[in-house]
Structures are given as structure tokens and as C-alpha cells.
Write a protein that binds this DNA or RNA. Structure first.
Length: 453
DNA sequence: TTTTGAGTTGTTCGA
DNA sequence: GTCGAACAACTCAAA
């Protein structure tokens, strides 16, 4: 680097793969310095590796953000390795004055980033891009973290009178010389031998796809969302979760768009509160995971440590492959396998079935979802599995056991969803139930009762 | 400190 | 078919 050159700022992209409402990027741009956008395929010990479906998504999302940066006269530098080493190396190579990033809140990542703040040989700055309210900003009257949703959301909501989002930068100054980069193809994020991603073509990863999805959802109207969101046979949910997970769109942008649509009366909104509360659950889950980092591996309620989980490889396999003989469960598991997604209502039923009907440890289900969901998220996935299992942050009566037949009748009344994913239903090829519902229910109630003593 | 009210998403039984 | 109660008592958050 020549003596007269201005030292650049590295913008370390992580799960914030967007240009709009990206405070780290905006801070780098407004510093007036050249900007080096970076993505690291992180191999830091203690940081959980992403699953196969997430790798598929990441591949497309990185291509999208690289393309958008290209339009602004910039690039995305790709490197792999332990994040700290990669950053130090790149700072040394480029003489960067700073490294900016947007904060994450999950186990391993928080420690990694905190350490970087003191060890990096450059100005390290972090920002909030992901959440409406960061985990430490909301506290109970006693100054503690919340573990019940309703009071948490009441407190968090009251802070959200004026939510603002940043625009996308118009232009990025390039460094005089670009550092070396891997190619996306080098990383082999897209599956091969076999390429199982045929059913994933329903998705459009990337910032543009995310904004389109939001517009589409708001356009149809959240009207009736409170009811329609429970119907897997209808197009009643936003399907923004993977976009949100990868930060292709931010919670603030969604919040503002929902508020604006209500204010301008573009659609008949009766259920916007319900939709916003779903963002609230995401906020709450991040709050919980920040204060309880071992949530993916340890019961939040220690009383569940005594639960007599069954080891049942055959049953677990039947569950993963959608061969339990319970149509709604099987449809959900097949939708997941085919598309990397499962409707929320069906997730609850399928997860409840694994934990309560099969008495298989929720952690096994959590790991399966981690690998197969395109929206697999350290906070949401772990917190929701614990919630279903009954050991989660929010007190839920232990006797709440979903009836997979009753749920199907209620939420898929014409069987459209079930028939779509289980076409052989009603023929001899469809398996008989691997457990009897009434017997399994009785067994689960007994196990929880005795296991808790 | 003690008390009090309340808590995402359910199921089954019997009247 | 509909409706209310029982399930079994716990924990949290705020007053």
C-alpha cells in the first residue's frame, strides 16, 4: 500500500446480507474511507457449523449480495478459516484502519466477537442490525432477564414507538487494490452427488427476494392473519424466516412496513398486532438465548433432566423420512425434506410427536431441523424445541400433547396439505401408525410425571 | 417480603 | 355438535 493511500475499513458481513438498514456498512461508507466487504466461512472452534439446507441458502445469498455490491462499484471478498485469524490476516494485508460488523447473539459467536474487540489490530466497531431491541435492553423491574413472553413483549413493545431504518448506500469507495478472494464455487455450498435441492426453487434468496416476499405478504393483507397463519393448506404466512435469519431483510424494515401499510390503509389489517407479535417471538428467543447460551443442549428447566428419553433409531428414522403413519406429521417432514421449510403449525405437531409420542429427546429433533431447515436459527430453533418439549422458557402445561389427527382435521380440513405431500395416502403403500395415539399419550403423561419427580 | 394475577399455539370427557 | 371443566399445580413478574 502506498503512503498516500487512505486506510480502508473492512465490513465483515455475517447474517446481515443486505445493503439497506445495515449500520455497519453505513458507518464504513460515511467514514469516507474505502470499504472492503468481507464474508468469512467461519471455522472458529465453539461456533456451530451451519446445516446443509442453510449452506444451500448461503450460497445463493452470497451471490446476491456480491452482485449488489458489484453494482455499487465494490466486491465481496470471500475467505475461510477461524474468523480471528482471517481478520488479522486481512488487516495486515490491507492496512485497514477498522473492522465493522453487526452484532449476533448466539453461543460461541458472542465470545468470539467480544474477544475480537480487544485483540484486533484495528478499530473494531459493532452495531445492531438484527433486532428491534437488543437482549440487554429489556429488563424486568428487578433488573433481570425475562423468561415469560407476554411481560417481555409488553416491555419491549413499549420501546418501539419510533422505529427507524437506514437507507442503502448509493456508492462504495473501492480500495486501490483488492485483496485476494476465494470463489463461491470453491466453497461447494451447493449440494452435489446427489443434488437434493430440486424442491428449493420456491425460494429466492437475497435482499431483492426478501423485499419482494414482504411486499407480496403485505399486499395480500395481513387481514385474517390470526386465523390463516394456522392453516398449512393456505398461503397465510409470510415465509420471511430464512430471509430474516440471513439478514437479507431486517426486523426494523418489516416493522416499519407493517406500520406504514396500516397507516396508509393499503390493506385491511385487523391482525397486524399478531404479525408483529411473531417478530416479538423472534426478539424474545434472542433475548432468551443471549441470557441462556446453553439452550441448544441443556434443558432450561432442570427438572426435565430426569426425563426418561427413549433411544429408538428406527422410530427416529421413520419420523425424519415422513413414515410415521400420521399424515400431518409425515406431510410436514416431507415438506421439510423437499423444500427446507415446514409450516409453523405443522412444526409444532411434528415436533410434539417426536418428543411426546415417540419420547425421543428434543435435542435429536433440534439437530435434524438444524440440518434441514433453510431458516435454522440458533435462537429460534432451540427455543422452540424446548417450548414444545415443555422444558422451555415459557411455562406450558406439561399435559399439552397435540393429537396429530385432531390437528389435521382442524387446520387442514380438506386434507389439501396432507395429500400434496403424502400422495399415497389412502392406498396400501401408506404405513400404519408406528404408535397408537391414545397409548402414546398415556405413556408420555406418565413419563413426564414420574420423570419430573 | 409477600401476595396476587396470569400464562401462544391442547385434549378429552361428560353433560 | 357444542360447551365447560379437568388435566395438576408451577413459575414468573409486578404491585
Amino acid at each position: 500500500m502506498g503512503e498516500n493511500e487512505v486506510p480502508p475499513i473492512i465490513v465483515w458481513f455475517r447474517r446481515d446480507l443486505r445493503l439497506a438498514d445495515n449500520p455497519a456498512l453505513m458507518a464504513a461508507v460515511t467514514s469516507g474511507r474505502p470499504v472492503i466487504p468481507l464474508y468469512i466461512l467461519d471455522e472458529t472452534p465453539g461456533v456451530r457449523r451451519i446445516g446443509a439446507a442453510s449452506r444451500w441458502w448461503l450460497d445463493k445469498s452470497l451471490a446476491a449480495i456480491a452482485g449488489s455490491l458489484g453494482v455499487l462499484g465494490s466486491r465481496l471478498i470471500l475467505r475461510r478459516g477461524a474468523a480471528a485469524e482471517v481478520l488479522e490476516q486481512l488487516i495486515a494485508e490491507t492496512g485497514a484502519a477498522g473492522a465493522y460488523w453487526n452484532r449476533l447473539y448466539d453461543p460461541g459467536v458472542v465470545e468470539r466477537d467480544m474477544a475480537l474487540k480487544t485483540t484486533l489490530n484495528a478499530e473494531a466497531r459493532s452495531f445492531n442490525a438484527a433486532l428491534l431491541t437488543e437482549p440487554w435492553e429489556v429488563q424486568t423491574g428487578a433488573g433481570k432477564d425475562y423468561s415469560v413472553f407476554t411481560p417481555y413483549w409488553r416491555a419491549a413493545r413499549s420501546r418501539l414507538d419510533r422505529v427507524e431504518a437506514l437507507p442503502a448506500p448509493k456508492r462504495l469507495t473501492a480500495p486501490t487494490e483488492w485483496p485476494k478472494s476465494d470463489t463461491l464455487a470453491d466453497w461447494k455450498l451447493h449440494p452435489s452427488k446427489p443434488d437434493w435441492s430440486g424442491g428449493f426453487d420456491i425460494w429466492r434468496p437475497g435482499e431483492t427476494g426478501a423485499l419482494e416476499r414482504l411486499a407480496q405478504f403485505l399486499d395480500k393483507g395481513v387481514h385474517g392473519y390470526a386465523e390463516r397463519r394456522d392453516r398449512p393448506d393456505l398461503d397465510g404466512v409470510s415465509r420471511l424466516s430464512p430471509h430474516l435469519h440471513f439478514g437479507e431483510i431486517g426486523a426494523r424494515q418489516i416493522w416499519i412496513a407493517a406500520e406504514t401499510a396500516v397507516a396508509t390503509g393499503e390493506a385491511a389489517y385487523v391482525d397486524v398486532d399478531k404479525f408483529q407479535a411473531e417478530l416479538g417471538w423472534r426478539e424474545f428467543n434472542h433475548h432468551v438465548v443471549f441470557h441462556h447460551p446453553r439452550i441448544a443442549t441443556e434443558n432450561l428447566r432442570a427438572s426435565f433432566d430426569a426425563m426418561p428419553w427413549r433411544k429408538d433409531v428406527k422410530a427416529f428414522r421413520a419420523w425424519t423420512e415422513g413414515r410415521t403413519g400420521y399424515p400431518l406429521v409425515d406431510a410436514g417432514m416431507r415438506e421439510l425434506w423437499a423444500t427446507g421449510y415446514m409450516h409453523n403449525r405443522v412444526r409444532m405437531v411434528a415436533a410434539s410427536f417426536l418428543v411426546k409420542h415417540l419420547l425421543i429427546d428434543w435435542r435429536e429433533g433440534e439437530r435434524w431441523f438444524w440440518d434441514t431447515l433453510v431458516d435454522a436459527d440458533p435462537a429460534n430453533n432451540a427455543a422452540n424445541w424446548q417450548w414444545v418439549a415443555g422444558c422451555g422458557a415459557d411455562a406450558s402445561p406439561w399435559f399439552r400433547i397435540f393429537n396429530p389427527i385432531g390437528q389435521a382435521e382442524k387446520f387442514d380440513p380438506d386434507g389439501a396439505y396432507v395429500h400434496r405431500w403424502v400422495p399415497e395416502l389412502g392406498t396400501r403403500r401408506y404405513p400404519r401408525p408406528i404408535v397408537d395415539h391414545a397409548a402414546a399419550r398415556a405413556r408420555a403423561l406418565d413419563a413426564v410425571k414420574t420423570g419430573r419427580l
